[in-house]
Nucleic acid binder design. Structure first.
Lengths: 154, 154
DNA sequence: TATTGTTATACTCTATAACTATA
DNA sequence: TATAGTTATAGAGTATAACAATA
């Protein structure tokens, strides 16, 4: 159940496909950051939601969800959880929607989460020079914008 | 239930973190390629397993799994499914393990799956010049190798 | 003792459908 | 009619634990 055997060196037919490499690198990155966030009682998605609320006070959960490509049906329980823990509160906008505001407690949690993301990103990019980081960021922005033309959730 | 409303333009506090951008781009890419693979009766993971077997005949499922960062417990039902559909077959290595071999039918499916990955990759990278693609590939290799030092699953 | 294959199980993330209430 | 919020549910993907059989 440990799978830390040393062997193999298989040929990788998926290597030419950047989409798959993206998936693998992203999955490994999330596997790394997951336990760090879990120590704060968060998952990556929930952390993203809280950070997004903190940066955009007064928005509705539907707006936050759209910005993060999280469906209304899926963000609802996250918002409930954040409100239950008194990290955010709801201000009535009209009869059917609420503006989401971060609380003081939410602010302090936000700082911890941001630290986790920052230090993990430093690990992830540790082998890259400043110029390379800029390059990578620029290339990923290009890919992202190409995606947003066609894809449902970017 | 459609969430195609046009609005917002929120500020994105997650933008500086490459790890998170990676996650979003990867998720959108998989959302794009998923339906194409589904038409062939595959998911991205299952397709990766079959392609890996095709490229590395005679390896055990544990070896294939390690190469793809898929746990033994999770690859077992995939192998069973591929064998049931006669896309692969098992050759006994010793009393406890099998070498996996692709069948003729598996070969023809492999070609279709490779086409799906290739054409999707072309979409994903459509906005990038040849030089930019090379750059991106090189940068991602660097990140990947930095990961494999620390991460559990790369 | 360690590894292989397997089953059971749980959690996260994502997706659709259906519902109420409000714009 | 369209949108907001909610609940129920299902399918992937990934994780651990435990087991029998074999190295």
């Amino acid at each position: 159940m440990n799978d830390k055997h040393i062997d193999d060196e298989l040929t990788d037919p998926l290597e030419p496909w950047l989409g798959y490499r993206l998936r693998r690198i992203s999955a490994a990155a999330m596997a790394d950051v997951g336990p760090l966030l879990a120590r704060e009682g968060f998952t990556a998605s929930l952390a993203a939601v809280l950070l997004m609320i903190e940066a955009n006070p007064g928005r509705t959960q539907a707006q936050i969800g759209r910005a993060l490509a999280i469906k209304r049906a899926n963000i609802a329980p996250m918002i409930a959880r954040l409100e239950r823990d008194e990290l955010i509160l709801k201000e009535s906008i009209d009869g059917r929607s609420f503006g989401l505001i971060i609380t003081a407690r939410g602010e302090s949690v936000t700082k911890k989460l941001a630290d986790v993301f920052s230090s993990h990103d430093e690990d992830l990019l540790g082998s890259l020079s400043a110029a390379e980081r800029t390059q990578l960021r620029k290339l990923m922005e290009k890919v992202r914008h190409a995606q947003s033309g066609r894809s449902s959730s970017v």
